[in-house]
Design a protein around this nucleic acid. Structure first.
Lengths: 230, 230
DNA sequence: TGTACATCAGTGAACGCGCGTTCACTGATGTAC
DNA sequence: TGTACATCAGTGAACGCGCGTTCACTGATGTAC
């Protein structure tokens, strides 16, 4: 990469880093070009060399956040031997929670209420699907290994849900899973999402303070009820 | 109530209604005094007769939202005969989801990422606890009726969580429940919260479109695993 | 190795905007005698 | 029933603020010969 390009990339990264810091300090909507420029010792119009508009910057932050989340989860999963399907699921969800608690504002950016006046453009979609795709892959791997016996999942899947789940699989491509397996996976995803959302946004604290133990209990339930061996 | 007071109350209600409409149209952070005044055909300073500041208005909206949610859930529960504990739980959670889908911006106001520059004051606490207290009461009633056998709940509660849950009960007062019962309740709460949050904020749609069937499946699982009869 | 030119980063002034909040005021509504 | 006064709702002008974005520009960095 030519020198000029390198310097340019570094500036782009600095802008995003400052924006993230400002979000962390003042909330998601505090991302303003003028404040970023001030912090960087530049004037605001200079930022237009790097981002076409404020919305473009926010889009970049959203995409980065989704990618960082997926990266963290993938790294956690890969640290577990391929055969240990239960532990891989635990690792993935554990990384989800750790990432959320570690970067609450970036978590809020993608999972909280939308930023006023900003609608996430289509461009963020692929990054947004990465972490759920990973979860799907964990299920598929376990199923391919014969570690996931649908008959052991104690779940009555409503016919409407079975249809939705099958349509979803046809749309996404990839290996087909039995409806109960995927329906179970969706439930587990929502479960973890709820727990982590409550915790990151401070709704859990009045009840139990630290959410670690509750999270571990729920992980146990998920792994056990999925019929996965550790 | 004297006439003047009545007119005054009506104006307060109108201000909040307009604020809610503006939130619904432009997002949570679009609550601005000037826009509200414009919509009402008044000048902005007049609003200071009714609310000490913009933050006071937001606080009122947050409190109202919590109360509306709790009202809706209580009404749904009371429509079910006292003895049918499973159905009462279903009704409560069903009302939670219906309320969230029906008023997504008010849902976002209390459960989404916080409004920038606004921290919910202590005054919103009591209202915020109403709906979780209701859930706790459902558990307590079922337990008091002998309908909830802790031994039937297939849950290994981590010791740390048991301690947290007991401390919580001591703090809140009210009838004491066995740790597994309360731990199960927390899990169910998080589960429903996750599902509804994902759906209201549009994260579920790419996977299954309408979330009704998935929600029903999860409700079934919760009721069945709680050991409650319908 | 030096020169002429093109590219690009960043500046500074300006635009129009909407915001929360204050203040002194007018005029209507209610109250006491 | 009428009059004098107090209370209160709402106005209009003004404050200081920060925002996104545009534009013509300067000066530094890189490139071609």
């Amino acid at each position: 990469m030519p020198r000029r390009e390198r310097v340019r990339q570094a500036t782009v990264e600095e802008i995003k880093a400052v924006a993230r810091a400002q979000m962390a300090a003042e909330g998601t909507a505090a991302v303003t070009l003028r404040a970023i420029a001030r912090e960087m010792g530049m004037t605001a119009p200079a930022l237009y060399r790097y981002f076409g508009s404020r919305d473009d910057l926010v889009t970049a932050l959203v995409t980065d956040a989704y990618n960082a989340l997926a990266d963290a989860m993938e790294a956690a999963v890969e640290a577990v031997p391929p055969g240990r399907h239960g532990d891989r699921v635990r690792a993935a969800f554990g990384a989800f929670r750790a990432w959320g608690l570690g970067q609450p504002t970036e978590f809020a950016l993608i999972f909280g209420s939308p930023i006023p006046g900003y609608v996430a453009p289509e461009a963020t979609r692929p990054a947004g699907l990465r972490y759920t795709d990973l979860l799907g892959r964990l299920l598929a791997d376990a199923h391919a290994d014969g570690a996931l016996d649908p008959a052991r999942i104690d779940l009555r899947v409503p016919p409407a849900l079975a249809r939705q789940v099958e349509a979803f699989q046809r749309r996404r491509g990839g290996p087909a899973l039995p409806a109960p397996v995927l329906a179970f996976g969706l439930g587990a995803w929502a479960r973890v999402h709820g727990l982590v959302t409550l915790e990151v946004f401070g709704h859990l604290a009045p009840a139990v303070g630290d959410g670690t133990a509750l999270f571990e209990q729920e992980l146990e339930v998920i792994v056990r009820q999925s019929g996965l061996p550790d």
